[in-house]
Design a protein around this nucleic acid. Structure first.
Lengths: 353, 353
DNA sequence: CCACACGTTGACTGCGAATGCAAGGCGGCG
DNA sequence: CGCCGCCTTGCATTCGCAGTCAACGTGTGG
């Protein structure tokens, strides 16, 4: 079809490509296709009003030149970056490796991109905020605590924000999270069948919001059964931390016969300390529970009774809520709690009879 | 110092902020500070020639307005986005959760940001390439296989690329990786002390490059000891996959007494199948090895002999190499192999005597 | 006292794509 | 046959900042 001009076409492609330092722009494509830059722009924007012939010409030229629209320039004028910031700590990425991947999948499914900000400690999230604002992200998913002034900053800049497993202190941000209280309540209902007498709770670091929620939930549920937590020990959410706690706690004369841990990693460490360091039997001597349902918790070596966080539901809900806020269809802030699923395994005693 | 104009100042701040739909730009700051837009730009660029007084005025105004430079606009003109793309698969994020976090830390330490692209399968990386080009990322770290045409595309677009644990087929890309062959050699040297007779290898999915490398390394090393791999079975890199393989392989009449697994997850599954499904003893009946050194491999329940990947060295090297390419100080492509560290544990037999 | 150099400064332009607007082409309808 | 309206197209402008250039003031040396 382009027969008589084939050679000419090749020449023109090469001429445009030859200036290799420069990037291919919509003007180059326009020139090659014999149309205006506007036409090129409209071909690559969805909903653009272009005739099939023009579109064909543009696409052929773009193909030949290897053109892709410059998203930076686009977002400068559309005032949308299609970037969603995700704030994570080492803690999050260690304990919930799949969260980041699934957030990525969800974000990309809607044509956006995930800009990941890793922060050492929750508090440092403040440092990255300037960058967030600078990159004009369309929204933020924060799996870190947000100081009140950060929340306020997001509100002032009108950056939609969804907190992941954190309870917002202010009124602006939306949040998704696991219903720790109800989950703990289910867990305690099961535990009382094993006739606990002395109950200990291994918490995360002091001030860790998630751990506090779980502790509070456990307390309330125990009270309903006329029980109480005899001791709360703080550790660092890690296997090693849990094991160290176990070596101390379970070696005492009046050791607890039931230990609730704020997460699976510590529970696994504590169980191993019982079995390997102290020669105790789980669950006969001490029953142990966790929270998260790590893959290895289900393995026969561990067989840990725990609560599974609905990670997939959470990430899906987080992104959907965020998209609603970005689109402006959301009304005010919303908190969505997802139920944790009780996984009864061999680290707890069944009711007698 | 600003006493007589304090009220006036507040009014002007409010006037500029009042138009709340609009973002604060360098022009707003300039107006408030009583300087030109250029001065504002220079204050926020490092190396700009600005007098201390002007800088102070600008910073005060910027503070009052909550101004942060628009990085999108900046990168449009500087032709640098300060964005580094990281391509990961579900596989990567599952087996090396810390990789993503550490890459993030390294990238941010140098003032860049990490744009994460999650891809379902290695092959799909092609889909995201257009976006990569569109976002004008300064460089790419790919923990996925890259098809030759993708490599070529990166070369044409002059996007620096570092492959993570993948051997580049073309000549353009740099790469960092674990020295699987030497690691396997060390491992085999240790294994022969346990007098292996029948050796099996549990590989990853067919075509998985990392698994192939490890298999080849093991083969070579065994040959040096006059040994061979009797059987290669493919699984999916998962615990469940390894366990299923074990249930089949170890139940046979002529079962192997030594099983090398391409990663820890499968090795753990295989060990559990031996112990819990078949009642075999590890390492007496069968010795098992892995690769990666997952945290749980060191736990007493598993105690798996394995090779530790130097993840931190790898990520650090990857980012440094990438930065060199971006800066243009790198000469050609480079491949850096980091040694794996042999972790001898209880899943393999010690030499007799 | 003048020439010169240097450090600051602001006006202006360009990065690359999107879009409002007006002009053009085309068909349908009266 | 002529008018109207729709669809398509190109022109010109805009987004926010960086960098160029000329002009300015100040200080120094001759």
């Amino acid at each position: 079809m382009h027969s008589q001009s084939e050679a000419d076409w090749e020449d023109r492609v090469d001429a445009l490509l030859g200036d290799s330092a420069r990037r291919v722009t919509s003007y180059d494509v326009a020139k090659l296709a014999g149309v205006s830059q506007s036409a090129v722009s409209r071909t690559f924007r969805d909903g653009g009003s272009v005739s099939p012939e023009t579109r064909a010409k543009v696409e052929r030229a773009a193909q030949a030149l290897g053109y892709a629209p410059n998203i930076v320039a686009r977002s400068l004028i559309t005032r949308r970056s299609n970037l969603i910031a995700v704030l994570v700590t080492a803690q999050t990425s260690r304990n919930y490796p799949e969260v980041l991947f699934q957030l990525g999948q969800e974000i990309q499914a809607r044509g956006n991109r995930m800009l990941v900000f890793t922060v050492d400690f929750d508090a440092l999230a403040a440092e990255v905020f300037n960058d967030l604002a600078g990159y004009h992200v369309d929204g933020i998913v924060a799996a870190t605590s947000m100081e009140p002034d950060l929340l306020e900053a997001c509100e002032r800049h009108r950056i939609p924000l969804v907190l992941y497993n954190r309870v917002p202190r202010g009124g602006f941000a939306s949040a998704v999270g696991c219903d720790h209280a109800t989950g703990m309540s289910d867990l305690v209902d099961h535990l009382v069948g094993g006739t606990p007498r002395r109950v200990a709770f291994v918490a995360g670091p002091k001030g860790a919001v998630v751990s506090e929620d779980r502790l509070a939930g456990a307390r309330q549920a125990l009270v309903r059964h006329g029980l109480a937590i005899d001791e709360v020990i703080h550790a660092d959410y890690s296997y090693d931390g849990g094991r160290a706690v176990g070596r101390d706690l379970l070696a005492r004369k009046k050791r607890p016969d039931t230990v609730l841990c704020a997460n699976d990693a510590m529970a696994l460490g504590l169980m191993d300390s019982a079995r390997f360091d102290l020669g105790l039997s789980v669950p006969a001597d001490v029953q142990v529970t966790g929270f998260d349902d790590l893959p290895e918790s289900a393995w026969p070596s561990h067989d840990l009774t725990t609560l599974r966080q609905p990670v997939e539901m959470l990430t899906r809900a987080a992104i959907r809520m965020l998209e609603e806020h970005i689109a402006g269809t959301a009304i005010g802030s919303e908190r969505r709690l997802m139920p944790a699923e009780l996984k009864i395994r061999g680290s707890t005693r069944r009711p007698a009879g």
